[in-house]
Each structure stands twice: as structure tokens, then as C-alpha cells.
């Protein structure tokens, strides 16, 4: 069964260099705003994060050796480090 954004908090922090699971995303499909940590996490060849309301894709993360290949959907609101 799927997990949620919390499960890849470490990976997301490596990508964004700040903690983002408490930040929010407004979905491009349904317009609902949810914390990244509340998004549903699916693990296929790579990670797929989906809107907890409408299931549309919020992010795909492919872990290529030495690199992350990330695609984001919707409006992610991320605070820069203080």
C-alpha cells in the first residue's frame, strides 16, 4: 500500500536542501492545498507523489546514480533557509 510524503522526507531534503514535508502544494487539477507530507507516495521504478484529494501527480523522482531527476506539478510553496 502507498505511504506518504513523510517517507521520502530525506530524499526531498536532499533535493530541496530544506525540509519540505511541512510545506504545501496547491494541486493543478483540483485546486486543493495540502502539506507535502500528506501527499500519497507510490514507489514504482521511481517515486510518484500524488495529491491526497484527486490523486493527480504532484512529483516524480527518478533516482539516477549520483543524481535525482525531478518533475514537479502544481504550485509548491517552499520557504528558503533562514
Amino acid at each position: 500500500m502507498h505511504k506518504d510524503g513523510n517517507a521520502i522526507a530525506g530524499v526531498l531534503e536532499e533535493i530541496f536542501t530544506v525540509e519540505v514535508t511541512a510545506e504545501t502544494r496547491t494541486c493543478q487539477s483540483c485546486g486543493q492545498e495540502n502539506a507535502i507530507g500528506a501527499h500519497r507516495l507510490f514507489t514504482g521504478a521511481g517515486y510518484v507523489l500524488r495529491c491526497p484529494n484527486c490523486s493527480d501527480v504532484a512529483a516524480t523522482i527518478a533516482t539516477v546514480p549520483g543524481d535525482y531527476r525531478v518533475t514537479l506539478f502544481g504550485a509548491w510553496s517552499v520557504q528558503p533557509p533562514q
Partner: peptide, 10 residues
């Protein structure tokens, strides 16, 4: 070990 991680469930 890597962390701590998580800022939503705190």
C-alpha cells in the same frame, strides 16, 4: 543513518 527528517509530522 541519515536524519533527522520530517517537518510535517512533528
Amino acid at each position: 543513518l541519515r536524519g533527522p527528517v520530517g517537518g510535517y509530522f512533528v
